[in-house]
Simulated assay, not measured.
Amino acid sequence: MFKVKVYVTLKESVLDPQGTAVKHSLNSLNYKEIADVRIGKYMELTVEKSDRDLDEVINDVCSKLLANPVIEDYRYEVEEVVTQ
């Protein structure tokens, strides 16, 4: 079994109004050193071992459902879970 950590973020060329609002709020709270904020999504998937290639499965899932490839990038980390 695997635990897959998926991180989805807006592409650099896409405006992030939510991130801008958070940045302005932080600056107004006197955190002037905060120069930029980008908001994203984090998901954890538990994936059982199968005959299919894990990277292929995760890329399919991300590009078809978890991320919008037009405006978002994604990356993921895989760790094997040892069950007892």
Rank of each mutant, 00 (worst) to 15 (best):
V4C: 06
S63F: 05
N59E: 13
L54P: 09
V6C: 11
V8K: 02
K3M: 07
T46D: 07
L66Q: 00
G19R: 01
V4E: 13
V6P: 14
S25Q: 03
D73F: 07
P69M: 06
K11L: 05
L26N: 04
D60R: 07
H24P: 01
E56G: 09
L15P: 00
K5W: 07
Q18M: 08
Y31V: 00
E72Y: 07
L26R: 09
M43F: 03
K49R: 14
C62W: 12
Y74V: 06
I39R: 04
I58Q: 12
K41W: 01
N27I: 03
D73A: 07
L54N: 07
D55I: 10
T9N: 15
E44I: 02
D55F: 15
V70K: 08
L54E: 00
L54M: 01
V8G: 04
H24D: 09
T9D: 12
L45R: 08
D55S: 14
V47T: 09
E48I: 00
M43R: 06
S63N: 11
D36T: 15
V6M: 11
I39W: 04
P69R: 09
T20D: 11
F2K: 08
T46M: 03
I58K: 06
Y74N: 04
V37T: 11
R75E: 12
L10H: 04
Y76T: 14
S63R: 15
V22S: 02
D73Q: 13
A67G: 03
D51E: 15
D36Q: 15
E72R: 08
Q18C: 00
K49V: 15
D51P: 06
E56M: 14
N27M: 01
K41S: 04
